[in-house]
Design a protein around this nucleic acid. Sequence first.
DNA 1: ATCCAGGCTCCTG
DNA 2: CAGGAGCATGGA
Length: 300
Amino acid sequence: MVNKQRFITPLLGPIDFPHLVTRIAQSSHGAFYRHREGRIGRVLRVNEQPRFVEVGLCPLNPSMLAVTVYDGIQADEHEVRQLVSHLFSLETDLLAFYEHSAHDPRLQQLVTRLSGARMLRDADLFSSVISSVISQQINLKFAAELKRRLWCLTGERVLIDGEEFYADPTPGAIAQLSYDQLRQMQYSQRKAEYVIDFARSIESGQIDLGFLANLDDEEFILHLSRARGLGRWTAECVLLFGLGRPDLLPANDVGLQKAVSSVWGIDCRITEKELREKSSAWKPWSSWYTYYLWLSLAKS
DNA sequence: ATCCAGGCTCCTG
DNA sequence: CAGGAGCATGGA
C-alpha cells in the first residue's frame, strides 16, 4: 500500500484550468468530481480497479499537469496518464484548432473568448453510452440527477476524506437491475428499458464495444444505432465524449442548434439541414466547434 | 398551466 | 425513404 502517488503529465497547448474547475463545479458534472484548492478529482478505473485520481496545474511548469493517485496499491503511471489525457482531452493541439477558426470571424471570436477550454470527456465507453441515453430529450439538470442516482446504485463506492465517490458502473452491475428499480428513480419506462437492455446486450456479447471502438465514425453510428433506444444523436455523443473523435457534428442536437442560431444572430432555431451546410467548413474540427458552441450556451 | 428539454420509435405517404 | 405524430418525465 502506498499513501499517495504523484507524477506529472504533459499536454499539447494551453489549458484554462481555473475555468475547467469552475465549469465542473457549476455544471452537471459537479456530483461526480471533487474540486478543492484548484484541483479536480474523481474516481477512475485504473486497470479495472477504482482509484481516486486528482489533477491540478503543475506549479513549476505550466505546460504540465500534476497528478495524484490516492491510496491503494501502486498504480500504473502510464495507464493513469492515458486516462487523464483522454478525460481532459490533453492530447488535442488546441493552437491548431484556433488557427483553423481564422476562416470565420464568428468562430474565431468564439474560440478566443473560450481560449484554453478543453473537452471534459467520459472516462469509459460503456458508461458514456449510458450517460448519453439518459440525456436524451430531458434537460441537463434532470439528466445529471438520473445519472447520479444510477451511479450511486451501481457504481463501486470509494471513500475519500470521508466523502463518497462512485466508479463508473460496469455492464454487469446494470444488467442485473430490474426496470422497476429505475422507474423508482424517476426513469421513464422506455429509458429504463434502453439502459438495462443495452447493458444486457453487452453482457451477452451481442454488442462488442471493443470491436465498435475500432470502426470509423459512420460505421460506428450504423452499428450502435441497431440497438433499441440508441439513435444517431446518441452514437455521435458517444463518439465525441466517449471515444474523443475530433470531427463529430450532432446536427439534430437542440443545444447546438440554439447556440449556432445565437452566434450567427438567427431569430428562430436553425434546422438540422441548415446546420449541416453551415458546418461543412468545420472539418476536421467539428467536435471542437460543437463543444465550444455548447459552452457558449452556459451563462458566462 | 404550458412549453420544452443536448431524441427515439414507429407509422404513414 | 423522408416526414411527423406520439411518447414519458420533470423543470421553468
